[in-house]
Write a protein that binds this DNA or RNA. Structure first.
Lengths: 227, 227
DNA sequence: GTGATTTTCTCGTATGACAATCATGCGGTC
DNA sequence: GACCGCATGATTGTCATACGAGAAAATCAC
């Protein structure tokens, strides 16, 4: 106990975690993992019983998910898990195709060298996961990689948008990760991004990020819509 | 009544307008117009009485606005109208700086010639409004101009994002429109965008759109943060 | 079988209640 | 006078319950 209080006592971030937030997380995860498939009709009473919460809290959580675009109004007769059409997915990838380069650019602008080093290490972990890990491990490692870039970019608003957008296309991406040939391609693309960032070369990094999104789109579409 | 039914009778979209939507629109407008200033603490009971609605419906509307980022949690003790910091605003304009060029690009890809013609006419109206109209008229005409581009781009998701982002910065933009020197600049920038679109020149149009956002940011910051 | 009628289901909205928590003010102590 | 403890009030979070409206499903009548 030799360290002074000022350094050991943080403001103690208040985490009451209102019930509705837990409900949201639960539903979001269910959608992300595919437990709730697109198009599923949600009946309030059933969900209340399954989650063991009151309708009031449940509905507030539903409203929030609706505002995020994860749930959509079904001709004023309840909510359904949103079904992303091919056109929607196209548009989402177009948006990601400009947002992710922006994030990379801002990372280069704002992240100190330590974070670049940490990012490099994380990309090595990701590479290893791609080569020998299972699907879950890949997804988890990749998410951490993304989080690192997005946090380092110091643009929480864009980060938030990206999270929402990727959640929408999670049904597509789920089936895409398992394809082995996509893995090798991903490794190369991510290497290119990291290399551009390490050199603080905005143009190169942005181009790599854009290409990465474009290829992810192609891969997702190949699986999902058999184009 | 000589026209066939198929052309005169539209599917007649059912508009039940749940109460919570009216509440949302009311609050949104209040924020947009400045009637509710950033930082204002919202007390549920007061709002219920002012709007004459039940707490149930009000809270659902609040949750939705919270998810949109318009309202923010105030240490778990009520909601406040979000205060956009200088950094936030910077990030928002950065995002708009990549989203709006994307919209313009997709407009060029997807909009038929008629819509380009209509856009040109609208830009003329906007020019006239800038020169002789009052602030409200300018805002309304400009909004219609934007709506036309965004709708023509056939990317409703990006459109939605832009609407939410611009709402967040409405306190800044409100004070910026009135500055006369900004008006002339705006006219030129919009002319450049329309010219690029008319020529279906993606690069030119996108560059003009990006420049327009960048200048709008500068103008907004000059007023709001006296940098 | 088909059209009309009734029943059921589900959502939208409202009300009242209670616990938990925070803000405030008051009195007592040093 | 500054500080602590405590009672009080205000506000949110959560719940149970209720009822009307509209759609869907089931039933009935022909």
């Amino acid at each position: 106990m030799s360290t002074p209080f000022e350094e050991t006592l943080n403001p103690l971030v208040h985490e009451p975690a209102p019930l509705r937030n837990k409900i949201m997380n639960s539903l979001r995860k269910a959608i992300e993992t595919g437990a709730l498939e697109p198009g599923t009709h949600l009946v309030e009473k059933d969900l209340c019983e399954k989650l063991n919460v009151s309708r009031t809290s449940l509905r507030e959580a539903l409203r929030q998910l609706q505002a995020e675009g994860v749930l959509t109004d079904h001709n004023n007769r309840g909510l359904t898990v949103v079904t992303v059409t091919r056109t929607d997915a196209d548009n989402i990838y177009r948006i990601r195709g400009v947002l992710e380069p922006l994030i990379v650019e801002q990372f280069i602008e704002n992240a100190p060298d330590e974070e670049i080093e940490a990012l490099k290490k994380q990309s090595e972990r990701l590479k290893k996961a791609y080569l020998e890990g299972n699907a879950e491990e890949i997804v988890a490692t990749k998410r951490e990689f993304y989080d690192r870039i997005c946090t380092g970019a110091r643009n929480p608003i864009a980060f938030d948008l990206l999270k929402k957008l990727t959640l929408l296309t999670s049904p597509l991406r789920r089936s895409s990760v398992v394809r082995p040939e996509r893995r090798n391609q991903s490794i190369q693309e991510i290497d290119a991004i990291v290399a551009g960032i390490a050199a603080r070369d905005k143009a190169a990094a942005k181009a790599a990020a854009e290409a990465h999104v474009a290829n992810a789109a192609v891969s997702a579409f190949r699986v999902a819509y058999t184009s």
